[in-house]
């Protein structure tokens, strides 16, 4: 089972949410709207390239779209191994976090 980094998890969640519409710009927007993090296309493609090498996503290339100066787009979908990895990462996290969020907020006050 592959261990997923935090950024990789964010991307996989975005790919899952976007369904057939997951490509660089839409993934970046999805992450930005939900987390407030501005992510660069370079880091998205680097991470997706690595996830694809590990067999967690697969991609499909399409010709240009609006405002892209004729550049192509690449759409991504989760593969079953990717889905399993993401689910396991989430269950680990949520199991550890279970019931702790209130206490976590209390830590800051000292």
């Amino acid at each position: 089972m592959s261990i997923l980094g935090e950024f990789e998890q964010l991307i996989l969640w975005a790919v899952l949410r976007l369904g057939d519409e997951a490509y660089g710009v839409s993934i970046a927007r999805e992450i930005e709207e939900r987390t407030g993090r501005d992510v660069s296309p370079g880091s998205i493609y680097t991470a997706l390239g690595r996830l694809e090498d590990r067999g967690l996503v697969h991609s499909r290339r399409e010709g240009g779209g609006a405002g892209r100066a004729g550049r192509p787009r690449k759409f991504y979908r989760l593969r079953s191994a990717g889905a399993r990895s993401l689910e396991e990462s989430w269950s680990h996290l949520s199991a550890m976090a279970d019931g702790q969020i209130d206490r976590l907020r209390g830590v800051g006050g000292g």
């Binding site: 710009v25 892209r68 550049r71 192509p72 690449k74």
Partner: peptide, 20 residues
Amino acid sequence: GVRGETRDLVEGDLEERFAA
């Protein structure tokens, strides 16, 4: 700084977001 297919994709994304 960027080579091959990734360059096309990155350029496309940058342009698209800029326009939007």
